[in-house]
Design a protein around this nucleic acid. Structure first.
Ligand code: FES
Ligand code: FES
Lengths: 153, 153
DNA sequence: AATTATCCTATTGAATCGATAGAATTTGGG
DNA sequence: CCCAAATTCTATCGATTCAATAGGATAATT
């Protein structure tokens, strides 16, 4: 399961990407718009900044804005930064490999063999879906919704 | 991440499937062979039994054995039974759907759109990999390992 | 009856999750 | 230069989950 923290992080970045302005957005504004506890969001944005996704400006007229373009940020990047590796077991993680203490032989471990496939399938989706991709699909969905509404009325 | 509990469950079922005998296997034996804390394994096996994967026999000569054949048990079945739904967000779970309280509209939620793809990719692997499949692949890996060893010597 | 095993209930310590409090720091404007 | 507005930092909190253990109750075989 995604933690709420990661979900909030994705929500915040998607929000900032949709704005796509030069003017920074205040934490308080972001928190209100997306229904995220402000103090919690504070910590999350700071962490995202430290990972290089955002940059910030203090004082009056300050706030957060994207550092990279939406095409350069993948969903996998953000989730890894906040929740850690995607892999279901540490021995198949590309970004944070660790030996499984309880398994005798990595090469012949059935769990590892299967979980490698799972990790690859997840990474294939998450590393090839950028924030820009998501925004496009959201727009499509919004259009489809409008058409539905017109049909009903 | 898989919990240790789920990992132990998979290990135990793979062990029982490899034996594939009519004679039941004792918890103590299983715990020793796979380096699993015995009392913890007790609880896990009981849970697997309640989910219909195993059946047990009490008293002398007793122990656990598979209830279904290795071809009938998928990795996904076991993981869902122990760790719960595969889906990264509740709104895309097939087995345990729940609305996301914090999202405004499910149809136009970018996180949902992406996570649906992730869930499907994971389920595609885990629901189409049976215990029998895993055992086959482990055997192949063991043969490959033997060949390696011969080459080196 | 004795032995061998699973079954059940309860509890524990540690870690993680989700969130909050309060003060420090930086920046821009008057 | 001072004030207000914003981020930044430190610290702590309660609740839940994770991983494991303890101790006895129950059932089946010999
Ligand atoms: S070696 Fe990592 S799961 Fe077995
Ligand atoms: S509706 Fe489930 S993630 Fe948004």
């Amino acid at each position: 399961m995604l933690t709420k923290k990661a979900k909030y992080a994705l929500t915040a970045i998607l929000n900032l990407a949709r704005k796509h302005e030069d003017a920074p957005t205040r934490i308080s504004e972001l928190a209100q718009e997306e229904n995220i506890p402000q103090k919690f969001l504070e910590a999350i944005l700071l962490e995202l900044k430290k990972h290089g996704f955002l940059h910030s400006k203090k004082g009056k007229g300050g706030g957060y804005m994207l550092r990279k373009s939406p095409e350069e940020i993948s969903m996998g990047d953000i989730i890894r930064a906040i929740d850690g590796p995607l892999a279901p077991v540490p021995c198949v993680s590309q970004s944070a490999y660790q030996k499984c203490s309880e398994c005798k032989d990595e090469r012949t471990c059935g769990i590892r063999i299967t979980m490698k496939d799972v990790r690859d399938a997840m990474a294939d989706v998450l590393d090839n879906t950028t924030i820009a991709d998501v925004l496009r699909r959201v727009e499509e969905a919004e259009k489809a919704k409008q058409i539905e509404l017109v049909k009903i009325s």
